[in-house]
Design a protein around this nucleic acid. Structure first.
Length: 695
DNA sequence: ATTAGGG
DNA sequence: CCCTAAT
């Protein structure tokens, strides 16, 4: 009666286009910036263009391909000079815009880190660090990206098609695309990130392109150490600062728009701005973004992304801002966590330092990223693959005397199936919002990547590509990548792959992905390995996303979350470091569970069970009514009952959240009274047969 | 592992 | 929801 008729939408997997990120330069390192500027421009322009395009397609944001560096006030000129056509895929954006914070580049001293976000769905930010002189990006870039992805990936239950767009795209633009040498990283531990996943989901479904969803998991893992770059060369130790920290105060106000890529150093609140679209400080802020979720996400992201900041005093402001932005009702997922974690994080951030080995410097320029809209994975004949001679870290080279590069192009990631329940009367906008929330929640726990070879999941992370067969061009055609929610676990440290130069941060594993509150539920495709992923019709059934078992079990492994920072020898041109931006987590500080408000249906089930069983048998209540809802513990039920009783006793005006039908509240009071009385009786007398209320 | 309560 | 204490 009180339940509205709902529509269930299920879409399995979303195609997520790769997104580009704008480079952002550090304010404090102007000189450094200058050095890289030239190179950056190219990339930036391209990126800006792309981004602008993507943005332009988004409903609420007027894209402006430029960002301004607030801090420095300098502009990275990025007039969108690049032809958008080169972008990989401009697919219609069907869902929400990605958050502006997504793209940032940081230039530190000599090092520039270019962050590139790979598709929204992935939620991951990858940092690509290149030696300043490395020249045009090349295959190595791609390789690094893939590598990074692989590293981070665990088992994905869903298939993801990945295309490395950004880097690639830029390269193409620059005309260097094909010329770049590939870095040799193929053998040995080199590719560790592959895991098999058994089933894949069909890729059909809703296309959520360019949705930017970030895992909220929290960036909060404060515990974890911030990512650090280490370079072999001790000569230079540079603290890494990601400029994301938003601080309001210092940000200049700019107009949205239009002209530059933002480079703010410390302050950007938003980030880097990112979204081309907007951009004033204000613009960058959450307000600009249409939905709460997005805002929230963005905020979180910042935190996450701004792992290492040494001298930023903006925290307080930022924090405030963050809270403000998160204040909305709908932002329940992480708010608490965020607030709570704040201090810890801050600490962590402060500690992060990056040292470059070799004293190398990395320029953040993204020299040549060019991505064409290739579809799927592009396989290249190994024989023709370029072996990067430059790159070489001797060790790597030695190990695999003959490395053949594997070129991969990931067009998009397939995200897991989502199930959404929404009233028929809901608006399209709310549907979008719901999807956004679902995706957000879905990603909250982090993302992992799975590799599919000819439809089969490649589980052994330790196998080399060669061993796996991925190096074979014919097989590459059938190579796919999947994204799956859940703690990103990292396979063996990248260190092995990259050699000494490569460092991984030690992060704790992220908590499992949680499901969004409300009626929203996300499920991954069930696989044999993931039995949990079963959908139930019961209101209380657990729609929680399932984590791939494999991953979950291997917590001890290096979490994918760990940020892998790679310091490349300045000299090694090809080496690119791809660093997924994730916040590290410490095991001890466990992420707070996502808030998942009880739906009316759940309340109904709870009330019914309590009426029958009483108020002191929460375990039984759980078993009886919420057995399939794994995310509802008996403690949760007990707590919910407590709140229901409270809710029933207060005036309707004081109630918050989804209104609970009065009828149910009346039953709550009735049952509460009844069982309280029974309990009193029991205390007075020896236990007798248990009475049952109503029934 | 549960239950009860405070936070 | 979390955390604790007491079972």
């Amino acid at each position: 009666m009180m339940l509205q008729k709902r529509l269930d939408y299920g879409f399995s997997g979303c195609q997520v286009p790769a997104m580009l990120c704008f480079p952002k330069s550090a304010k404090r390192k102007r000189s450094a910036r200058r050095k890289v500027e030239n190179k950056q421009l190219c990339a930036i322009d391209l990126l800006a263009t792309v981004a602008g395009e993507l943005l332009s397609e988004r409903e609420n944001c007027a894209p402006s391909p430029q960002c301004i560096d607030k801090t420095s006030g300098t502009m990275n000129t990025s007039k969108a000079s690049v032809n958008p056509d080169h972008l990989c895929q401009k697919e219609p954006l069907k869902i929400e815009p990605f958050d502006q914070h997504s793209c940032n580049d940081t230039v530190l001293g000599l090092e520039v880190a270019t962050k590139r976000q790979i598709s929204c769905g992935s939620t991951e930010h990858l940092h690509i660090l290149r030696p300043k002189d490395s020249g045009p990006a090349s295959l190595s870039v791609k390789y690094d990206i893939s590598d990074a992805i692989a590293q981070e990936s665990k088992t994905l239950n869903n298939r993801v098609d990945i295309s490395y767009s950004a880097a690639y795209a830029v390269a193409g633009r620059c005309g260097t695309e094909r010329n770049l040498p590939a870095s040799p990283k193929v053998e040995g531990d080199g590719l560790t990130g592959f895991q098999e996943s058994e089933n894949q989901m069909p890729g059909n479904g809703l296309d959520i392109n360019a949705v930017s969803i970030y895992s909220m998991e929290d960036s909060m893992d404060l515990d974890t150490k911030p990512p650090a770059l280490v370079s072999s060369d001790s000569s230079t130790e540079v603290p890494v600062c990601w400029n994301y920290l938003p601080s309001n105060s210092s940000l200049p106000k700019q107009e949205c728009g239009m002209e530059h890529v933002v480079d703010r150093d410390d302050d950007d609140n938003s980030s880097g701005c990112t979204h081309l679209s907007t951009i004033t400080n204000k613009a960058c802020r959450p307000q600009c973004i249409g939905n709460h979720q997005v805002r929230k996400l963005s905020t979180l992201k910042y935190w996450r992304q701004a792992p290492n900041i040494l001298k930023y005093s903006h925290f307080s402001d930022y924090d405030t801002e963050k809270k403000r932005s998160l204040h909305g009702k709908k932002i329940y997922y992480t708010r608490q966590r965020t607030q709570r974690s704040y201090c810890k994080r801050r600490k962590l951030f402060e500690h992060c330092l990056v040292s470059t080995s070799n004293g190398g410097m990395y320029s953040g320029d993204i020299p040549n990223l060019c991505e064409m809209g290739g579809i799927g994975v592009e396989a290249h004949d190994p024989c023709t693959a370029v072996v990067d001679t430059n790159d070489a870290s001797s060790s790597q080279t030695e190990q695999s005397s003959s490395y053949n590069s594997v070129k991969l192009r990931i067009k998009s990631f397939m995200v897991p199936e989502l199930f959404i329940e929404i009233p028929e009367t809901a608006t399209v906008g709310s549907l979008k919002q719901t999807v956004m929330e679902a995706v957000t929640a879905f990603l909250q726990g982090g993302m992992r990547i799975g590799v599919l070879l000819q439809g089969k999941k490649v589980r052994d992370d330790n196998k080399t590509l060669r061993q796996t067969g991925i190096s074979c061009s014919d097989k590459l055609d059938n190579l796919g990548f999947t994204l799956e929610p859940g703690p990103a676990q990292t396979p063996p440290p990248l260190t092995n792959l990259r050699g000494p130069h490569f460092l991984c941060l030690d992060d704790a594993v992220e908590p499992l992905a949680r499901i969004p509150p409300g009626a929203l539920s996300i499920e991954q495709e069930a696989t044999d390995s993931t039995p949990q992923a079963v959908r139930t019709s019961s209101p209380v059934s657990d729609h929680e996303p399932i984590h791939s078992p494999t991953d979950a079990s291997s917590l001890d492994q290096t979490p994918a979350d760990k940020l892998a920072l790679v310091a490349l020898p300045p000299v090694s041109i090809e080496a690119l470091a791809v660093v997924p931006l994730r916040k590290p987590r410490h095991p001890e500080h466990v992420q707070r569970r996502i808030r998942r408000p009880f739906s009316v249906a759940e309340v109904e089930a709870l009330v019914q069970a309590v009426e029958k069983l009483g108020t002191g048998r929460w375990r039984d209540v759980k078993l009886r009514a919420f057995d399939s809802a794994k995310h509802r513990t008996y403690v949760d039920l007990k707590d919910k009952w407590k709140t229901l009783v409270h809710t029933a006793r207060i005036s309707p005006q004081q109630r918050r959240g989804e209104p609970v039908p009065q009828e149910l509240l009346d039953r709550v009071l009735s049952a509460q009274a009844y069982w309280s009385q029974q309990q009193a009786k029991l205390h007075a007398k020896p236990p007798a047969a248990e009475p049952c209320l109503l029934l």
